[in-house]
Amino acid sequence: MQPVTFHVPGKPQGKARAKTVRNRSTGNVHSYIPEGDLLYENYIKNQFLNHAKGFYLEREKPVSLSIIARFLPPKSTSKKRQLDMLEGREMPLKKPDMDNIVKVVADALNGVAYHDDTQIAMVVAMKVYSAVEGLDITVEEYTG
C-alpha cells in the first residue's frame, strides 16, 4: 500500500492537557478536551482524507508516522540569523513540545488512517524553521 503524504497549513500545535472542572452544586468532577484541540485534530483529519485515496491500515498492521513541524523564523531576528534558521543551522527550541505534536497527529488519524493509535510502531519527528509553516505528515505501513 502506498504511503500517504500531506501538508497541514498553519502554525503547528501540540495536544493540550484535558481540562478538569468540579461542579460546585453536585461535587462531580468532569474532564473535557479543549475546543481548540478538537478543531485542530479535525483539521488534520480532513487534510488526510483529502489525500488518502482509500488508505486505511487494519488493526493487525503496524504503522509508521513521519512528522516535520515547520515554524516561521521570528520576524524580530536579524537577517543573518533568519538565514541560519532557514538553512537548518539553528533549530526551533520552543513550544509546542514535540511529543505533544506527535500526540495530536496520532489522535487525529485514529480511526481514519488506522484502526487505533496503538498500532503505531515507529515515529520520526522533527521541528525545523521554514519559509512555510505547517506540518508535513507521512503515514505508511511499517515494514521494518
Rank of each mutant, 00 (worst) to 15 (best):
I120K: 00
Y129G: 06
Y129T: 10
R22W: 04
V112H: 09
F6C: 00
L109V: 04
V128T: 15
R24D: 13
L39C: 08
Y142T: 14
Y114M: 08
V124N: 09
N46K: 10
K103H: 12
V21T: 04
I137K: 02
K127G: 10
L83P: 13
N23H: 15
Q119F: 08
K95L: 12
D116Q: 07
M98Q: 11
S130K: 01
T143V: 08
K103C: 15
S66C: 00
E87N: 14
E140K: 15
V123Q: 01
N28F: 09
G54T: 11
G27H: 09
D116R: 09
S78E: 03
P73K: 02
I101W: 00
A69R: 00
R70W: 04
E41M: 06
K95F: 11
F6L: 13
M1N: 11
N100T: 14
L49P: 11
V112E: 04
T77N: 07
E35I: 08
F6P: 02
Y129L: 03
S66K: 06
V105P: 10
L57N: 02
V102F: 13
V123K: 04
L93I: 13
V102P: 05
E90N: 06
S130Q: 00
V128M: 09
I67V: 03
G54H: 06
H115E: 15
Y129K: 00
V104I: 14
A125D: 08
M1R: 07
K103F: 08
V132I: 13
S76I: 07
T20E: 15
M122Y: 09
K79I: 07
G10V: 02
Q13D: 13
E141T: 14
P3E: 15
V123H: 02
T5Q: 02
M85E: 04
